[in-house]
Write a protein that binds this DNA or RNA. Structure first.
Length: 285
DNA sequence: AACTATACCTGCAAGC
DNA sequence: TGCTTGCAGGTATAGT
């Protein structure tokens, strides 16, 4: 469900309602998640502690506590975080509940259970936790020079590359298609062929589209809602995602669909032509 | 090392 | 009205 904009919108919605609240009690469901739910002993770091910050790293939500522990939440495809009155009826797929000192409890609901909830204790190495994650699209480290270097001699389709956490975090299946459309790049292009100008366009458009999507409250295709239960609006601004056969907003030609890395990918074959190498890469014997 | 396919889950829509 | 099939916003892993 959620990519960077949706997770960011959820974080911003949670922040004023969580910071300075104390967690009174914690309850977990019994169903298996992608990662095991926190062990019982972890309650020591959570129960009776005050929330000091709510942050985002990649598609993770970090809830920092005054115990110096952090609750780390990933929403997977269908995860939601919403507030309910304490003691109200628990819904199907509610897997975690944090009771607060204001009569509300925060609930993590996740139909498909691809999400995760972890408690990071103060002794755990935070750098180690995120060591395989690339930069956020809004960081200065995400720039054309970095991308040229990282893509050098590689053949992966540029769309799969943009969705690779180790390269850049937060760009998922919807926004990858949108960013490449805005950049005039064919999603199948092998990354090694892109020029520094291509990467500059991709960096600029990534930041532009992701910030627009945040401003619109994210994209709701079927079930995404923010922390107040409201849908996003960016789905009305999608230009290619989910629009196979419909006219390209630029040139009117029918939008094409192709499967890359097992994911549906949308593009205009006129506005996003296939890349051709400028020079032959063939070695002369 | 780089790349691809698959697995993990539930729910929904489309096709028969 | 069922039943089957394929597909969905993510990511870790096993295999080529």
């Amino acid at each position: 469900m959620p990519e960077l904009p949706e997770v960011e919108v959820i974080c911003r919605g949670l922040e004023p309602n969580l910071v300075a609240r104390t967690i009174i009690a914690v309850a977990f469901g019994s169903q298996k998640m992608r990662l095991p739910l926190p062990a019982h002993e972890s309650a020591l770091w959570v129960t009776g502690h005050k929330i000091v910050a709510v942050r985002r790293r990649a598609k993770f939500i970090l809830v920092d506590l005054d115990s110096a522990a952090t609750i780390l939440i990933h929403l997977g495809m269908t995860g939601r975080l919403n507030f309910f009155p304490t003691g109200s009826v628990v819904a199907k797929h509610d897997h975690a509940r944090w009771e607060l000192d204001n009569g509300l409890e925060l609930r993590f609901n996740d139909t498909r259970r691809f999400g995760s909830v972890q408690v990071i204790t103060p002794d755990q190495d935070r750098a180690e936790l995120f060591k395989d994650l690339g930069p956020d699209p809004f960081w200065s480290e995400f720039n054309a020079e970095y991308l040229v270097l990282t893509a050098k001699d590689r053949q992966v389709p540029v769309k799969s590359f943009l969705m690779d956490n180790r390269v850049v975090t937060g760009i998922g299946n919807i926004y990858a298609s949108e960013i490449l459309f805005s950049s005039g790049m064919n999603p199948t292009s092998p990354v090694g062929l892109l020029t520094i100008r291509d990467w500059r366009a991709i960096v600029t458009n990534s930041q532009l589209i992701l910030s627009e999507a945040i401003a619109c409250g994210g994209t709701t295709i079927s079930d995404y809602v923010n922390s107040r239960g409201e849908k996003g609006l960016f789905q009305t601004r999608l230009r290619v995602y989910g629009r196979a056969g419909q006219p390209c907003p630029n040139c009117g030609q029918a939008i094409s669909q192709v499967r890359l890395g097992g994911r549906a990918s949308f593009y205009c074959s006129a506005c996003q032509p296939v890349q051709h190498p400028k020079k032959s890469l063939k070695k002369t014997p």
